[in-house]
């Protein structure tokens, strides 16, 4: 396992189990992700990828086992510490979570809400301070969208929205990025561009990157480490080169798939 034995791992899951009603979403999951690592979570729908991501920033609490993120035990910290932790972990949800009728710059500004007062954030959104606006312009340049800074988000294409979500994540100045199916709604060429961009900016910033992704080809092409989930269990963890035909088949084989029902 590359890098996973780094002295200061970014994320550690130990014996983690999560249940929703009668469904076991995760069973006995153990996983260590080193600082600066880039990990793709792959597996069929309902295998627990999103659940795992949501554990890492405490949007979800484990029923069993422990989750450590950036050195904090997520399940036990108080609300304030949890918010501070979330401010250091950028989470890009599958639906992106942008405010469609606000401009790009206003949406990116929201990335720092965790460190601002309500009134301060409100004032910034009405009248973005010049230095912030310049910083955001630079970020948008990095993600390839500088000319759209004052456009309303609902006028943008799916790929452009994803870039805004990425810019918001970067503006957050995080230690790690969690992205839930960042390219699921994009065509293959744009999806490829965006995954490449995601890895580049993570590498540049020394950020830990954990992404769920259902396009196996992109996971294998771009990520040094791929974690395969099926029925709430980790069935593969290693470099793409170790994921042979047999493993791929068993990962996605419907006849073998355990749906996670109790």
């Amino acid at each position: 396992m590359p890098n996973s034995s780094t002295a200061d791992p970014a994320f550690v899951l130990d014996g983690v189990g999560v249940s929703f009603a009668s469904t076991r979403a995760l069973k006995q999951v153990g996983l260590t992700i080193g600082t600066g690592e880039a990990v793709a979570l792959v597996g069929p729908s309902g295998s627990g990828k999103t659940t795992l991501l949501r554990l890492l920033n405490g949007m979800l609490r484990a029923d069993q086992g422990s989750v450590h993120s950036l050195g904090e035990e997520v399940g036990v910290v108080n609300t304030r510490r949890l918010r501070e932790l979330r401010a250091r972990i950028a989470f890009i949800p599958q639906d992106r979570g942008l405010v469609p009728n606000l401009s790009v710059v206003q949406n990116v500004l929201l990335g720092r809400v965790g460190r601002r007062s309500l009134l301060g954030a409100l004032r910034d959104m009405m009248l973005p301070p010049k230095p912030e606006e310049e910083a955001i312009h630079a970020l948008l340049e990095r993600v390839g969208l500088p000319e759209k800074i004052f456009d309303r988000v609902d006028t943008l294409s799916g790929g452009q929205k994803q870039r805004v979500a990425l810019a918001r994540a970067l503006y957050q100045d995080p230690r790690a990025i969690l992205a839930d199916e960042p390219v699921s709604s994009l065509d293959p060429a744009r999806a490829r561009d965006l995954v490449g961009l995601l890895l580049e900016v993570a590498r540049e910033g020394g950020l830990t990157l954990v992404t769920s992704i259902h396009q196996l080809d992109l996971a294998l092409e771009f990520f040094p480490r791929v974690v395969g989930l099926r029925g709430g269990k980790i069935v593969f963890d290693g470099p793409p080169s170790a994921l042979g035909e047999k493993e791929t088949a068993s990962l996605y084989d419907l006849s073998q798939q355990e749906m996670g029902k109790e």
Partner: peptide, 9 residues
């Protein structure tokens, strides 16, 4: 939800 996830209250 997204704002809660990035540390907003």
């Amino acid at each position: 939800r997204a704002l809660l996830a990035l540390g907003g209250n």
